[in-house]
Design a protein around this nucleic acid. Sequence first.
DNA 1: GGAGTACTCGATCATTGGTCTAGAACAGGA
DNA 2: TCCTGTTCTAGACCAATGATCGAGTACTCC
Lengths: 250, 250
Amino acid sequence: MSKAGPTTKGAAGDVWLRPATRAGREGPPLTRERIAAEALALLDGEGVDRLTMRRLAERLGTGSTTLYWHVKTKEDVLDLTLDMIFGEIEIPDEDEGWRAAVTTLAGRWRSVLLKHPWSAVLLGRPMLGPNVLARSEFLYSTLIKAGVGGPSLTAAAYGLSNYIIGSALMQATWQTNADPDIRQAAREHLRTSRDSYPSLAEHGPMVAGDDWDSGFTLGLAWLLDGIEAAAGGEVRGGTGTVGEPETFGP
Amino acid sequence: MSKAGPTTKGAAGDVWLRPATRAGREGPPLTRERIAAEALALLDGEGVDRLTMRRLAERLGTGSTTLYWHVKTKEDVLDLTLDMIFGEIEIPDEDEGWRAAVTTLAGRWRSVLLKHPWSAVLLGRPMLGPNVLARSEFLYSTLIKAGVGGPSLTAAAYGLSNYIIGSALMQATWQTNADPDIRQAAREHLRTSRDSYPSLAEHGPMVAGDDWDSGFTLGLAWLLDGIEAAAGGEVRGGTGTVGEPETFGP
DNA sequence: GGAGTACTCGATCATTGGTCTAGAACAGGA
DNA sequence: TCCTGTTCTAGACCAATGATCGAGTACTCC
């Protein structure tokens, strides 16, 4: 709390309490990395809506305006921090087989997103950081080496990413980000109106036991089954059996 | 406390769990519906960050404070509007077969999200509106009737929703929400650093032709294949072949 | 020592979500 | 007609926020 830096006005404390005479230039210089790291701590600790430039600056022992020298906007901070957590996703060993590698990557990816629940809400922005790109590159190259190509490649990469992101978003929404009051009220609401939503009231989210993990694993396996079949060269059921009742997209 | 409007300090925080403004006699000038409708027009027209209470009130011809009689917070407005667009998703005919019905629902769902690209960013909040619940109920009941049960049911319902939401989020991010400058810069960036990201530079998003539609359809078919197999009673490849290299979740 | 650069900061601005409180429109009862 | 209570509207106002500007301070290289 009491960050008695020489820059802090109120301290006015003893000169002896200040380590160096370099008033205004104490400690390591401010860098993008330090900013992102502190933002990460702030986000993890207090949530996304408690991150303000002033509070962040305060934790860094600087003025809020100083941040704008290193960073153009607040969105920059979010982008930097978002990419930073992607760095926590350890890239799997390639030679354990493509399917195991992808499964491992997906699991770690999801774990990291859930470890930082605020991240799920921010995923709707272009992510071009090195860590994000490296993980995407690994995913693409692994799939290509597995023999996935053509339209299946796009579908596979997108499908996996989208599935992971969607799962994390949904789980973070209901498990972490929503405050308990709303969760409880939601349960109540579903129970009292079970006439309108019988299946939902019995099996829906927040009602049935939240076995997020196995649900995720199972769905991922389904996707991988399809990708594996597509990689095998045979088109299999897939596109053929589905039919297209209407055109998608805008 | 004595002069309490309908929006004042309900037990639960969510709009849907609070009684609506009593329409009293006939139609009061301002209603939740009118507010949501105007917010929808504003969001569609100018995007999510141009929606402010003042601007919304101005378009409605009232003062901004008036809105707070009908609505507790700005988030209420977003919740109402979000549920409103879910009403655009026509619920498919049940007797066309479960797979066709689910495919149709998924396609329409995605279409609506993409038609209102601002919605994708807002999906990370509890959605308890009647329209959302009705669509979820249809999804659950259709799957149940198709013979999906147990852990497969949760995985299927979550998997489909997550896949749809993730797909819409990703596509909206890259196709609509990102301004063209960033898209162009992203392409450039990937091209110049193709040494680091060879596969991505060749097949990644924004680089390859953006065939979002067929990618979505193909991935959806994979998921449905897995669900269909699970519904058939046979466990098939699925869980068995995957293995679990590490535990997921936090 | 001097000059230019890298960095910091207080003051300040416009905008935002939200509250307080006064009051208008309206109904019903006497 | 007056009174009373409820429903709804609105102007003034508040604290917080993202961001800018110009001035100032430290550091580096010559």
